Amino acid sequence: MASPSRTVQRIHFEDFGGVEFERLVFAYHVRAGWNNLAWYGQTGSDQGRDIVGIDMFDASSPRRTVIQCVNRGALTRTKAEADMEAAVSAPTGRIDAIKFVSGGSISAKARDAVEASAMALSIEHLTIWSAVEFEENLRLRAEDLLRRFCAGEVFPDSGDDIRRLADDFAGLNDDEALRLMAPLFDRPAFRTPFHQESSLPAFLQAIEDTIGALNTGIWRTRDGDEIRRIPSLHHLRDPLTQGHVREAARQVDELRRVFIGGLRDGSIKPCSCGKSYCHTFMLNHGIDRKLDQLRMRALDAFRSAHPRFDIHVS
């Protein structure tokens, strides 16, 4: 007999207090990997800045961003303009972007008006999230925080305590943890087939980053900067599930070992064009297939833990 379908009702953030909403917004951005987050709203003197942080993940390059939380009343051009004027003239220095997170709906007319005001103030990067957009991102990256918020569990008062809460992942079940891990494998290093002549920009770095994130939960950029916290394999509760993810990590590590070995013994060689920026490598016959097999084993092992995982070698 088929199980009844469930309808997920949207969250009415506007039913909650403004401070609680700010706490949730702050906790979400901690979970999303933003750096140097400061919650000014808790001091009562935000000078047009509820939260300030550096967007390391959603932007193409790190941006110092002011995040304004709007949970009482609609986001109007007048309010947005006042907040943006205060933010750009605040004594804490230059900002690169402004982001509004609303607890309600935002009309197309209101968006257009706020965007026009941002352009007039020479603000190049503007993000506007309605309640629906905020909820979608919460369900993607921080469903446990959303559950806590909706269940009436009060978030801590201080930014440091909220940061510890968001980094703990204690409320995550294994399926949610695996969903946050899955993007580690959704990158060209795991999807692009090897050929005897292959373009491999930062391939080794991507592999090492994946191993590190699976084992520690710290996802880093190519330059080593932390961009996001995710659950590590040690957060997984089911021994069988954890075993599959450990096997995926072992296969990725073997992939790294074979690639480094190929560079050392000459079976993998940089292109002979002599250009330092060239990403092309020449692979001897056989090692390309071995590398592909190791990647497929890693993806299959992770899929054994997370059956909905749908990344494959192209």
Results as ranks from 00 to 15, higher is better:
W39E: 01
V52A: 10
R297C: 01
R94T: 14
F13E: 15
R164F: 03
I106Y: 05
F259C: 11
A249F: 14
S276L: 14
F309A: 10
L178P: 02
D225A: 03
P156F: 07
R257W: 04
E115K: 05
L184A: 04
G152F: 04
R229E: 06
E85L: 09
R220P: 05
Q205F: 12
L204H: 09
D174V: 01
D50P: 12
M296A: 10
I268W: 02
R31H: 08
G262P: 00
V25D: 02
P62I: 02
V245S: 07
G159T: 08
G104T: 09
L138I: 04
A116E: 08
F21G: 01
R264M: 12
G17E: 04
H235M: 09
I54K: 14
T43M: 11
R250E: 00
A27F: 07
F134L: 07
D175G: 10
S158A: 14
A2I: 12
P193W: 14
E14D: 15
R10W: 09
L126N: 08
S45A: 01
C273V: 06
A305M: 05
G274D: 05
I211V: 02
E135M: 06
L236D: 15
E81R: 15
V88Y: 10
S267A: 14
I11R: 11
R72N: 01
S3W: 08
R256C: 08
D174N: 02
D96K: 10
L299M: 04
G103D: 10
S314Q: 15
T241Y: 09
C150T: 15
S158M: 12
R237W: 00
S158R: 14
F57N: 05
R222W: 14
L165G: 08
D46V: 08
D15E: 15
K79E: 03
N215D: 03
D238S: 04
E124M: 15
K109W: 06
A131G: 02
G18I: 05
A108F: 07
L165Y: 06
R77H: 05
T76Y: 04
G266S: 13
I268C: 04
S232Q: 06
G53E: 10
R229W: 03
I211W: 02
N36D: 04
R49L: 11
G48L: 00
L37N: 06
A120F: 06
G33Y: 11
A166S: 12
G17P: 03
R308Q: 12
T92V: 10
N71G: 15
W39K: 07
F16E: 15
T280G: 07
R147F: 07
T43D: 11
